[in-house]
């Protein structure tokens, strides 16, 4: 039951409705394609421990609703995210065109140092492609994003997307560019003792619980 990890990163999956955000998350966590997917209402949550450059990292992933009407709800999840997957659908130019808006939101509402990876999802539907790889990678370069084309159906590049993003964050921590101690960095140390020191409120709640039972 006790899981050990070195770091905990808070992740976010954003992008237009129907681009496959929930399916990406499901594929990443369950290694299966979710074929009965519905619109996400508000937000869903998943977590997984991965190992990146000899460190085990727990990803705490918020999968947000893509529909425009939920923006005001999902915005509150940007706060304190360390990384984000910005997802568009390679068979829909509309979802690609919306990227600028999503990016503005993310840069404005999340921490300054948020690491974003652009994911062109539905790579398996190459025949219906509306956005070329070249075009998207240029966009990614201009906006300093990492970029991958993924397929939640086949699982191609899905794990890589999360791992690459986590690796970049780890690198930033090692180079000192990111400080896990800073509030709202979206990063926590995994060591239990450290965590307790850092969140006395939680320890308090636990002691209350003990006498409550």
């Amino acid at each position: 039951m006790s899981e050990t990890y070195d770091f905990l990163f808070k992740f976010l999956v954003i992008g237009n409705a129907g681009t496959g955000k929930s399916c990406l998350l499901h594929q990443f966590i369950e290694k299966r394609f979710k074929d009965d997917s519905n619109h996400t209402i508000g937000v869903e949550f998943g977590s997984k421990i991965i190992s990146v450059v000899n460190k085990s990292v727990k990803l705490q992933i918020w999968d947000t609703a893509g529909q425009e009407r939920f923006r005001s709800v999902t915005r509150s999840y940007y706060r304190g995210a360390a990384g984000a997957l910005l997802v568009y659908d390679i068979t829909s130019r509309e979802t690609y065109n919306a990227l600028t808006n999503w990016l503005t939101d993310a840069r404005m509402l999340a921490s300054q140092n948020i690491v974003i990876i652009l994911c062109g999802n539905k790579k398996d539907l190459d025949a219906d492609r509306e956005v070329t790889f070249l075009e998207a990678s240029r966009f990614a370069q201009e906006n300093e994003l990492m970029f991958l084309e993924t397929s939640a159906l086949t699982g191609e590049n899905v794990e890589e997307a999360f791992v690459q993003c986590a690796r970049k964050i780890l690198n930033k921590i090692e180079s000192g560019e990111l400080d896990p101690e800073r509030m709202g960095s979206g990063i926590q140390y995994g060591d239990a003792a450290l965590r307790q020191l850092r969140s006395p409120r939680r320890a308090q709640a636990e002691s209350v619980q003990e006498c409550g039972c």
Partner: peptide, 24 residues
């Protein structure tokens, strides 16, 4: 109150679990 305190300690807010309750 005990549960509320526990949620506070975890930073677990109503919108994280109850959105769907209300909206659907």
């Amino acid at each position: 109150p005990d549960l509320w305190n526990h949620f506070q300690g975890l930073n677990l807010e109503a919108h994280m679990y109850a959105s769907q309750w209300f909206l659907t």
